[in-house]
Design a protein around this nucleic acid. Sequence first.
RNA 1: GCCCGAGUGGCGGAACUGGUAUACGCGCACGACUUAAAAUCGUGUCUCGCAAGGGAUGUGGGUUCGAUUCCCACCUCGGGCACCA
Length: 1001
Amino acid sequence: MVKQYDHRKIEKKWQKVWEIKKTYKVLDPSTSSGRVKKKKFYSLIEFPYPSGDGLHVGHIRSNTAMDIISRKRRMEGYNVLYPIGWDAFGLPTENYAIKTGKKPSVVTKKNTDVFRKQLKEIGFSFDWSREINTTDPKYYKWTQWIFLQLFKNGLAYKAKSFINWCPSCKIGLANEEAVGGVCERCGNITEKREKEQWMLAITKYAERLDKDLDLVDYPERVKSQQRNWIGKSEGSEIEFKIKCNPSQTLPKGEGEMPKFFTTSPELWRALQDKVLDMRKNPTNGEKAMWDLLRRNNPSLDLPKGEVKNSKGFHFRRQHIIDRFIVDFVCIEKKLVIEVDGDIHDYKKLEDEERTGVLNQIGFEVIRFTNEEVIKNPKNVLEKIILKLNNVSSKALSFGEGLGGVDMEDLEGIKVFTTRPDTIFGVTYVVLAPEHDVITNLQLQIMNWEEVEDYIKKVKKETEQERTKEDKEKTGIELKGIKAINPANNEEISVWIADYVLPHYGTGAVMAVPQHDARDREFSEKYNLPIIDRPLVDAQEITKKVGGKIVTKFKLRDWVFSRQRYWGEPIPIINCEKCGFVPVKEKDLPIKLPEVKNYKPTDNGESPLASISKWVNIKCPKCKGLAKRETDTMPNWAGSSWYYLAYTTQGISNFQFLISNKNIKNKTRKNIDYWTPVDWYNGGMEHTTLHLLYSRFWHKFLYDLKLVPTAEPYKKRTSHGMILGEGGVKMSKSIGNVINPDSIVKTYGADTLRIYEMFMGPFEESVAWSTESIIGSRRFIEKVWRIGEKIITNYELRITNEKNKIKNSNNSFVRQDIAAEKSSDSQSFNISKILHKTIKKVSEDIENMRFNTAISSMMILATEMEKEQSRTLDLQKSPTLNLEDFKKFLQILSPFAPHVTEELYNQLPITNYELKNKKENNSSIHFSKWPKWDENLVKDQEIKIAVQINGKVRTEILIQTDENEEKVKKIALTNEVVLKYIQNEKPKRIIYVKNRVINILI
RNA sequence: GCCCGAGUGGCGGAACUGGUAUACGCGCACGACUUAAAAUCGUGUCUCGCAAGGGAUGUGGGUUCGAUUCCCACCUCGGGCACCA
């Protein structure tokens, strides 16, 4: 009787052997043993985050796929690196630490131990000697080192940026924790909080990240997603000059020119900052006066009859006149109001001089003290109104006598457009509310209060609210400001609106409602003109209006700070004197200090900030008091270079990046040998972030001449997700998570591997079905039965023969096998199927069509067993020969490494070959990948379909590549065909070689 | 809204470059072996029809001798981007 297939015994046995023999350890190209002339192959999977939930069946799917490819490559003679490690910094561990107080490092150790054990039980051919862990200080030393290089090259900087803030948990959240603007932990709505954050200038690499996609073999959808994310667009930057429109600033009928250009452009620019500052910080008196002037518009507040001018007066505060900044001014009436504090008492002379100058150029000045304004506002107001009504002097005309500002000297509004050809259809210009120009034009904007309120309102909104779907566009016109269309010198209005984003392009848009849906929507809402003008040539017009062709990107710089504990500390020291000082390289790694509480502080700082012993440090430059940076890196950091760490791990703990001096050292040899990764499989969810980030870091390292290629990954493929039964997502809350351990226990790792590869197309999502696993198990059992029968049959025959001939020496065995190998027409059919299968499996693996590869091997196994059962008589020579079966095992071995290894080692033919070839590795996984024989793949005779009028009616047997006339003859003499065509003559006959013949009647 | 991908039996899915639709597996039914069960093996399994034959690849058109495959319109599902000028 044949032995039962015992997956537990077999899998345990071989896993142990592989581990002891270090079967999958790669050859180090920098050592003598590595200097074999083997081509390298570097296959990579995304290293897992060791969560407390253990290995997911989804991990197994992608790991198995790359394991199959790696094993095939080894059999094809490559030196294969298939490494594994842990992307172990991450939020779940940290949140667990916050909850339980357990050390993240301890939790991580526990989790990785579980993962490691689970992975080993599935029989992946990882080189475990190269295992890495991003939380290992030996590892993150180099993550920090790369950060320092980025800093030193101006690619890391600190800037104000918005973080997601949960007001209920009082902590900052990562974007992925605040999806949809909702806190992942408590469900509350998050706010945006402005905070200084470390940023990486990935945008400086935007062009190359886009362009170099041409160099790599990624699926089209991955490339287009990356391109979409980078968002390159070419267009024109065109300046619209600003002009102030007098007609809107003056009361109707007076028709006077504007009076607010009361200084020279040079002085205006020089004093502008001071003006803004003063407005922000008014004295009490100034504030009271401003309230008085604004809320109590003199013309409206007093009883009727006492005010002659019913139109009211427009006051400005902190206005520049000549070289002075006056507190308040009504330009129409040339009345200056000054509010003095005590400080001015000893400055009387100065003030008198100032009043003198103002008087000279036609302004009247009245003064009040702070006290007066605050205590007796009514009195003050009455005085002002009296003055206003009595002042008779006419205001100055445009710039008269003052070296007035020609607005052409002012900076215009630069817009970015991809459609300069529509420029004649521009009816207004829109700025983002955050645009700089607005504050610079504050003095010229007539409705500043309204504008300011609007800007505040917009800034309050979160990004989510602002860009929410179906949000109605809002905006406000900047009154008193006009823009000039450089194409036709038309005067158009200037608006600010929330639909214009500050961080894209120039933050300003020329609106063409005729051609752009958004502009149209906005125009309709605010009754702005929509005009249809002919298009013009884009290149030409850009030149004509003095614009330039520019390239813009959607990509934004990478926010690299987290106010968290469980990440790499950012190796920067903040010194009051010297600014940001990098930690000295010899002081790396900056280890994560022990901390009592892992929770971020109430004001949103990382828990590291509370360890004053750790934070306070001497400045490496000036030796003065300084503080460490307490932000940590995001978990994308460690994964941005891990594929490089694998190439040198176990060789010199990644000393590779240290400097060019070591260019010839061992580690450089390894990097140069292994880089780039030949084949990287991962999930679509990492297409835009991880993949882009690591490409960015790699390019940076390439620029430092530390890696040999511009791109890290030659080829990228992606796997589909495994869904729960019924096609829903697997999740703990639904309770449909499959534990791989129990599957391995019940069915075996080989079965699980085959099942996961067979369940559906690799790149598509598939639903798990525990019920269906049995099919894969049956297939393996079938292979086992065939193998056992072959082996026992062979042993029995030898025993029989021995007894007969009493000849027990080896020469017999050799003859016997030779006879079987050269074999025998009987198994010709099997050989044909075998070689077709070898071809199909070889090709399918390359295309990741594992499901069809397995289905073809299932067919082969069924045929082999059938053939075998035909000749059960042990006296006869078996028709299924050992050589064919061995080849079958070989092509199956990447899929089911344990059972094939076991059978292979039991095959008598294997032992024989090993003795002759003196190979020292008896593993099937280092045997030679079988080649298919084209002659056997090609059929001599084939069946083709015969169609009458396009419908299949019968089939005929023809010789392969038979000439057309002969095929027609065969078809036309076929019984069924004759029945259909009767005596008619076919109108037309179409023959497709070796496929089909279609007879039209 | 825009860009990708997909829609085939009870279920997961095959089908090369336009050439016999439903391979392979699960499930189900019947049969063989067995005292019996399990396992295994065999047969059947899109649909209507006794049959001859007809109809089916999301829906409706089109191109073609011939369409799951190509084109047009629409519906549904999945993924990505999203006021990006």
